[in-house]
């Protein structure tokens, strides 16, 4: 280590410790936020088309595929919230109340997976019987998402 780097070393360490290099990390944080938001937007899109089908506005011939897409995106969601990066539409309570959040997400994952598997094995009508119980989006959004 040269004299100059010896001199800079403590400064860099202090900058990192006190957030002086925040811009470099902010870019990473934005990636984390973008990642989870895109997963939630996927869920939003597929739940919306399912809603259209349930309301009779759209034919129901792709229900199995939509349920599978919802289950798949639901399986991605918890992982995307694991990095504790506040911002976007997430409230800090996601991480301060992680156990509850995690439990709700796992419940969401298992119920949407069950619905998708039921649709494949028993048909769409069987899967749609309890679908509203699987898609309790609002319960979570009321607690963990910023008011829109």
């Amino acid at each position: 280590m040269t004299r100059r780097t010896k001199f800079l070393g403590p400064i860099v360490a202090a900058a990192v410790a006190f957030g002086g290099l925040a811009p470099a990390f902010a870019a990473d944080n934005q990636d984390v936020i973008d990642y989870r938001e895109r997963i939630m937007k996927t869920l939003d899109a597929q739940v919306a088309v399912l809603g259209q089908i349930l309301s009779g506005a759209t034919p129901d011939d792709q229900v199995v595929s939509h349920l599978e897409a919802i289950a798949e995106a639901a399986s991605q969601s918890l992982k995307s919230f694991e990095p504790k990066v506040e911002g976007g539409e997430s409230l800090p309570v996601v991480w301060t109340n992680w156990k509850d959040f995690e439990m709700r997400m796992k419940d969401f994952q298992s119920k949407t997976r069950l619905a998708a598997d039921t649709a494949k094995s028993q048909g769409k009508d069987a899967a749609l019987t309890n679908i509203l119980d699987a898609l309790r989006c609002k319960d979570c959004h009321d607690v963990y998402r910023k008011k829109q």
Binding site: R38, K41, A45, V49
Partner: peptide
Amino acid sequence: VMNYRKNVMKTMGEQNALLQM
């Protein structure tokens, strides 16, 4: 009809973006 296909395309757009990330 338009909402339906837009949401399907939105799904593709979002998941493609995730893949690129």
